[in-house]
Structures are given as structure tokens and as C-alpha cells.
């Protein structure tokens, strides 16, 4: 789907940056790259532009410009309701963090079962049942 189609509060992971010339380059240099996580923050009162959070900072894009970005909708683990199964898409953090999560069986591609929703939440992985804190659950993205 297109970035412009996400609603406030929703997350996406960038698949491809389209467009050409200035807009293409500008989006890339702001860090909108394949694999980056974007959150829709809010829409301007007049319907356009839209505010997004990316890599910890905030930018505003006109709808027209946001149609150049292809995304997949994802959800941070912290927002997943109880009793549902999800697949891990992305873990946002350095090598250490990814390793720690891996030790609990939370790694890209793995299936998790949420037993108790956030926070703290309990999830069942292929390595057992673990308690995941809010800070961690925020940085694991699933679908």
C-alpha cells in the first residue's frame, strides 16, 4: 500500500521509494529508505499535509509526495491484543538488542503468540513463555 493510505497511529515499513528527481532524492536523504519504519502522527486540520515520525524525528509530507512511498502496514508488538498470533517483521535496535530478543525466540520471521497484552506483556515463542517490557515491545514490529 501507499504511505498516504496509512491512518494516524498506524505504522508502516518502507518497501520502495518511487518518484524521480528531487522528490525521490529528498525522501531518501530524510532516511525514508527500504526497511525504515514510519509512523503516521497526525493529519493537518485541512486534510493535507500529513505528519510522520521516522527514525525518531518528525516530518511533514504532502499527500501527493507520500504517494511516492510504498509501505507494508505493520504493528508494534506493544499494540497487539491478547490471544493473537503474529509474525515478527522487524526489530528496531542495535546488534545487542537484536541478540537479546533472539535469545527469547523473538527474531525476524518467527511466529509469536500473545498471551497477555501490554504492558508488561506475555508472549509464547518457540523457546517458551517470556515477559516483554514496554520499552522492548515498542521496538518489535509484527504483522
Amino acid at each position: 500500500m501507499l504511505l498516504s493510505e496509512l491512518k494516524p497511529g498506524e505504522y508502516g515499513i518502507v518497501k520502495k521509494i518511487g518518484g524521480s528527481g528531487a522528490i525521490h532524492r529528498r525522501l531518501l536523504s530524510m532516511g525514508l529508505l527500504p526497511g525504515a519504519i514510519v509512523r503516521v502522527v497526525r493529519i493537518s486540520p485541512l486534510g493535507d499535509p500529513i505528519e510522520y515520525e521516522i527514525r525518531g524525528f518528525f516530518i511533514s509530507l504532502r499527500k501527493q509526495e507520500a504517494t511516492n512511498v510504498e509501505v507494508d502496514k505493520i504493528v508494534p508488538l506493544s499494540l497487539v491484543p491478547g490471544n493473537s498470533e503474529v509474525r515478527v517483521i522487524f526489530i528496531d535496535g542495535g546488534v545487542g538488542f537484536v541478540q537479546n530478543m533472539g535469545a527469547m525466540g523473538i527474531a525476524v520471521g518467527k511466529i509469536l503468540k500473545v498471551i497477555k497484552p501490554c504492558c508488561p506483556m506475555q508472549v509464547q515463542t518457540d523457546r517458551g513463555i517470556f515477559t516483554v517490557g514496554r520499552g522492548m515491545a515498542y521496538r518489535v514490529f509484527v504483522r
Binding site: 529528498r26 525522501l27 499535509p49 524525528f57 518528525f58 516530518i59 509530507l61 509526495e65
Partner: peptide, 11 residues
Amino acid sequence: GKSEPFVLELP
């Protein structure tokens, strides 16, 4: 203009 894209940072 060259219709520069309007990518605005909200600091």
C-alpha cells in the same frame, strides 16, 4: 518553480 518537494521537518 521546479516544484521543489515540500518535505518539512517539524523540530
